[in-house]
Design a binder for these strands. Structure first.
Lengths: 244, 244
DNA sequence: ACAAAAGTGTTCTACCTACACCCATGA
DNA sequence: TCATGGGTGTAGGTAGAACACTTTTGT
């Protein structure tokens, strides 16, 4: 404890007594993946009250001697193969005393991303839901999903987070579909290619994908140059078409 | 608790036992103010171990039935007059089990801003320090100050946070000095004026400040149009001079 | 009149969007 | 050879940095 606490709290008669042993703490994750061209979140269906039958974010209690990052990684390893999480970052902590009907539980939420090419085995009571069409959710979890969505959208325009959504190699039209799903508006593959190349986010692999039965020129395969988050443009990009 | 927890943790023998009553939790604040053209943080000098004699962020234990925002506001009211906090937002939560030598204490940090025109009465063991020249600090607090600095810098370019640093009315040369202090590089008053006007962040009050003894044209007084955070440009601005 | 500080006008450049056009392939 | 999808070239727009120039004051 800070040595000042006693001084200060002694001088403030309205300071509430701290809970002697502290508050319960849980970690939650908004795990996104692009599935069938839609941004999807991994949710659990609650089998028991409170909020029985509603959906909630995966996560659980923080271990007694566990770091926050370690904890969410551990808990997700039971839902999603840990090697498949290409990105994980802290989102926000919620501490409203009323957020949980069974007493005071603080929650630290994370944003996790899974690349589009894999399909983690998840338990039966767990499902991917489109982020734009959430089922009825318990607690404040729907609001947390929205925070995650906003964060992802913002970071797509000034960082290389795309690497975490895309498979190791991809064509530009695939990538533009991922961006469309995450951003919620059309992204022209033509310009996306130039923007990401100029910023040094992606590079050509030299390989190509043969055209399908309907013909067409073979598509070049690209990859992201870095596999961890980098801020490539402290500034702007990718506004919705029509300047809206 | 989430109904899934028992299921999942039962299936994971390596899950650490949660602390029965939860972990201790504190709230901290990085409070910035521009003083004499330097970005400064409010710090406490620790009178007792651990980290005796080093400096730390103001804050303290979370009350048993207190929200996180409420808690930091309450605790700051004992350091800084609460009406003077023009902006407050959550920064990050740190939960490394080793961050506190006296046991596991989670900390949720906030970023708070005080406008340049006021001078809150702070206790004797509390001082403003230049953010670019921090004294020896305890715990992980120096790292938290850096997070706050990064956040402030970023938000200055795509939101109207300036309102929280500036007094209610200001001249453009004053404002450009605030921006310079916060961003760490020169900001031309001429262009700043146009950028902020175009974005609708500021407006003229119609009043003027008479020139000083050394002459010069009287300066127009401006104000921010909004007094709470708004994202005025999802994209870019204010890169350092020379394109660096 | 001259220095000082504020404000305006103008140019230059970077970056992005949109769109027309060209290229490589399958049937 | 034509439909299909990928890739290139280019024109137009927007925004901001830099800087010269004008305006308004004090001495």
């Amino acid at each position: 404890m800070n040595a000042h606490d006693t001084t200060v709290e002694g001088a403030a008669p309205r300071a509430p007594a701290p809970a002697p042993a502290g508050a319960a703490h849980e970690v939650l994750a908004v795990v996104f993946q692009i599935r069938q061209d839609r941004l999807s979140v991994l949710l659990w269906r609650r089998a028991r009250p409170p909020f029985e039958g509603r959906w909630s974010l995966p996560g659980g209690r923080l271990g007694a001697d566990e770091g926050l990052d370690d904890s969410i990684r551990r808990q997700l390893a039971q839902k999603v193969d840990v090697r498949d999480l290409t990105h994980l970052e802290q989102l926000e902590t919620r501490g409203d005393p009323c957020r949980h009907p069974q007493g005071r539980i603080l929650a630290t939420a994370y944003l996790g991303l899974v690349p589009a090419d894999i399909d983690p085995l998840v338990p039966a009571d767990t499902r991917w839901h489109p982020a734009s069409d959430l089922p009825p959710m318990g607690f404040d979890h729907a609001a947390i999903v929205h925070s995650g969505r906003r964060r992802l959208r913002a970071k797509l325009s000034y960082t290389n987070v795309g690497f975490a959504l895309a498979p190791p190699e991809f064509t530009m039209s695939q990538l533009s579909r991922y961006y469309r799903a995450a951003l919620g508006h059309d992204v022209a593959a033509t310009n996306l290619r130039r923007v990401l190349l100029r910023r040094g986010q992606i590079e050509e692999t030299g390989r190509f994908v043969p055209s399908g039965r309907s013909g067409g020129r073979p598509a070049a395969l690209f990859r992201f140059r870095a596999r961890r988050l980098e801020i490539t443009d402290a500034f702007a990009v990718l506004r919705p078409p029509g300047g809206a």
